[in-house]
Design a protein around this nucleic acid. Structure first.
Lengths: 201, 201
DNA sequence: GCGTGACTTGACACAGTGTCAATTGACATG
DNA sequence: CATGTCAATTGACACTGTGTCAAGTCACGC
């Protein structure tokens, strides 16, 4: 699909995506209209529709584009290299916690579009399910080490850890409680440790 | 304001509120338009505007109305009567956990309206800040008993407990993870105990 | 009988998304 | 050099949902 486009078209398309991501980040995902994006990209509103069939579709592609730019895989490498379940859990929370602020704007816009657009809902859900995989891996590692607290099945622990790491919790702690992202990471690690990790020995 | 209205006007106004709450509950807060509400209340769309100046204002009043109908105060009585901090924490989670499903629809609608309406945002925020008071009381009781885990200041523990009990977490656990509200309550209590309560002795 | 207040009807403004048709301007290929 | 193609433009327009306005109906109380 992209291969079949001329290089100027690819450039415009990329510029639209970059501008969309930038504006959503700046305005926390609120109040960014198609006309605003077009103006910021230096083209007409209608030209945006030559590249993306709808606002929701643009948001979906922008999310994927942002994932590529930020290189999620590379970021999660430290967590995967952990030597123990406890370490893996901590590193995963660090990686993800540092990631949230960067996807916050686009994510918020995508969530807002959920009500009216099924594809937007699916795209965000996919992203979050990918994050769930990381949670499962951390919990499984903990379980394999025999350090998952007895109360939890791996499945239930994964469900819960996943939920705790979702964006709204970060949002509330940073905007309503005025925690920094650094504090968020620190205390989320404390929370996860106390909740899921059994003392060894 | 209400006193100055005739009894038929009060009836219509109440019918609008009841119908709004019912529809929002049925449709999970999504896709309920002014026209739909009017039709369900058996009046014209314009008549709704005779009672409420805007959709957002209607949602705000509907939330307050629901609070009265559900009688939050009475519900929280058991928690206030607790003999220990640990008990108070558990009872509070039970009360609130049982409450969430009942306000979910209206809450979701209010949150969706946040982007465009400042009053809607404020109304929901107020409700959540009231819930925070309950969290603070539980944490303070725990602290007074000397059973708040050493890692936490009362303030930080309150921030975190409050965040954990916010609606999006219940939403994710019930809709994405297929937990029942009973399970939600049970495992949230486990989570809170492990996180905040220090073993006595 | 008369007025007042609740409500109706129908028209309309406005914002934002999405569609359509006609046109321009650049660039590549015969 | 002529032609075709493709990105993009301009302007008009449909649609949805909110909110406003004006004129009219209908019942009830005095």
């Amino acid at each position: 699909m992209i291969d079949a486009m001329s290089s100027t078209a690819v450039k415009t398309r990329t510029r639209i995506l970059d501008v969309t991501i930038r504006m959503l980040a700046e305005q926390q995902g609120r109040g960014v209209r198609m006309g605003d994006i077009a103006k910021a990209a230096g083209i007409s509103r209608q030209a945006v529709y030559l590249h993306f069939p709808s606002r929701a579709a643009l948001l979906v592609v922008a999310t994927k584009h942002l994932d590529e730019v930020l290189d999620v895989d590379r970021r999660l490498a430290p967590s995967r290299a952990a030597k123990s379940g406890v370490e893996r859990l901590a590193l995963y929370i660090e990686c993800w916690g540092a990631y949230i602020p960067e996807i916050y704007g686009v994510g918020k816009a995508l969530v807002s579009a959920q009500d009216t657009d099924e594809a937007a809902a699916a795209a965000w859900r996919d992203r979050m399910l990918a994050m769930r995989d990381g949670c499962r891996a951390a919990i499984d590692a903990l379980y394999a080490d025999g350090r998952l607290a007895l109360e939890w099945t791996p499945r239930r622990a994964t469900d819960l850890l996943w939920t705790l790491l979702l964006v709204p919790n970060w949002e509330n702690l940073t905007t309503e409680c005025h925690w920094s992202t650094r504090q968020y990471i620190r205390w989320m690690k404390t929370l996860a440790n106390r909740t899921f990790v059994e003392e060894s020995g």
